[in-house]
Structure formats: C-alpha cells, structure tokens
Nucleic acid binder design. Structure first.
Lengths: 130, 130
DNA sequence: TATATTGTACTAATACTTTAATACAATAAG
DNA sequence: CTTATTGTATTAAAGTATTAGTACAATATA
C-alpha cells in the first residue's frame, strides 16, 4: 500500500502488486458497495479528486469508472459526477450461465485431476456453505 | 472454428475469437477432463502432434501444457509425454481434504460474490459433469 | 549404442495493455 | 452569461503478452 485517499472510502493503491491501477479502483468500488460504504445513489469521488489523491492520471480513474458503467454498477454524467447506479442490476440468464460455467469449469477439472468425485465435491460444498 | 484435431479429443481453435491459442488449449483440456474424454493417467496429444494438427508453434502448445502442470492438472516428462495427473494414489486423506478445501473455497466465494446460490452451483456441477 | 520421440530454451517480431500529458466538452452554480 | 466543476478525447510512451523460428536436451526403444 502506498497512496491513500483521505475520505470515508479510504481508497488506496498497492503500487507493487502488479495489478493495474484502474483494476484496483474497480475492485475497491465493488468492495465499498459490498460492505455498505457506498449505496445506491451515492456519488463516487470525482475523477480529478481521486486522481490527485491516488497520485495517478485522471484518465486512469476515468477508465475504472467507465468499466464500472459498462458493468452497470455506476452512472456517469459529465459536469455532474459518477454515482452508484440506482437501478438493480439483473444479469440475463445467458450471462449468468456463462459466468457460472467459467467459474465451474476450472474448479471441476482441477478437482477431477485430483481424483475427487462429483459426490465428494457436492458434499464438501454443502459443508462449507452450510 | 478453423483448425481441428483428428482425434477422439477433437481439439480445435477459434482463430477469430481473440482468445489466445494457448488459453484455448488449456480450456479444451479442462473441458475434456470435465466431460470424461480425458481421465487420470491419460496421455495428452504430444506437443508436436497437437501443434501440427492445430497449425501452431510447438511452443504455444508447450506453454498451455506448462500452465496446466503449474495448476497440477497434468504431469509432463521429457521424452515420455504429458499425462493427466493421477495424484489420488499419492495423497493422504488429510492432504486430500486440505486440497479440496483450497479448491472449493475460492470457487464458493467467487460464485457467492456473483450472487449464485448453493443450489445453483450444485445443479450446474451436475449438469457439467454429466 | 543409435535413433526416434518427447518436451525445453532462447530469441525476436508483433500486438495489446496500461498509463500519462495535454487539450477539449458538458453541466452546474453564481 | 461567466466561471468553476465534472467527465472525455487524442496521442504517445513504456511495458507486457502472445506467437513463431530455430536449435537444444532428455527419455524411450530397437
């Protein structure tokens, strides 16, 4: 960790992690939503203020915000700011299926390579989730 | 789709998908494991034969096999070939449990982050495993 | 041992990704 | 209307990823 934002959001960048700055920003917005620091309608730090605070270029923040907008997580309006999207995001069934397949495929192939049976996996899943 | 392997595995590359060739190879090995076309101990196509069949460089196939080896999915030995790893016999029950937990934990947390329920995961696992 | 078969190492060309410098454009506030 | 505030577009530099050409090394087998 190195650069930190002096705000309730406490955004920060790990300069040595190798993770691109814009991806770190995306991740931190997502985490802030998950743990309630950001709610529907809340304004995010402005592109400039976050760029200054994190000591990176405004375009890098803007890129993060753009990706979040594409994912439907935020709404952006020039001159006004960037806000947590009010509408509830519903993934289409096709998108859900694709994501689920991408998550499950490597899990299943790894587990199979280790010799675990489907029954073992399901049993383990239930014990971890329950 | 364009280049296809004339084998039971039916590996093929989508040349226009933008997905790197070596990643497509990894994906197809994983899928072959998942649906049972490859089992523990089975030999994969040799680096050269798959490279010729897919009309790509041997190094590209080798890179895919290397990543699969790092993930513990295959074992490679020069002069012999590349095989689906059969770790089952080498692992103690305690080790198996630990590995299963390490495989399952990130899968479960990722899937939960996307909002998938345990029931959805199990249903999907069963459909993928056939 | 000789030879074929298997994976590996090194290098370079090309494309893509990431970030920043700088200037621009839309909206809000006075 | 003027000015401050907000996001956007263009371009370029630097790094990283991807792939192939070529030569090498380990193992199996006759």
């Amino acid at each position: 960790m190195a650069a930190e934002v002096d705000t309730a959001l406490r955004f920060s960048l790990d300069l040595k992690s190798g993770v691109p700055y814009y991806k770190q920003v995306i991740l931190q917005v997502e985490m802030a939503i998950v743990d309630g620091r950001l709610e529907n309608g809340d304004q995010l730090p402005t592109v400039r203020s976050l760029a200054v605070a994190l000591k990176i270029n405004p375009n890098t923040v803007a890129r993060a915000y753009n990706e979040l907008e594409i994912r439907g997580i935020v709404n952006t309006q020039q001159g006004t700011g960037t806000f947590i999207s009010n509408k509830k995001i519903e993934l289409s069934e096709v998108e859900k299926e694709r994501i689920l397949a991408e998550l499950t495929r490597p899990y299943l192939s790894n587990a199979r390579a280790y010799g675990f049976s489907l029954e073992e996996l399901i049993k383990h899943l239930q014990s971890m989730a329950g």
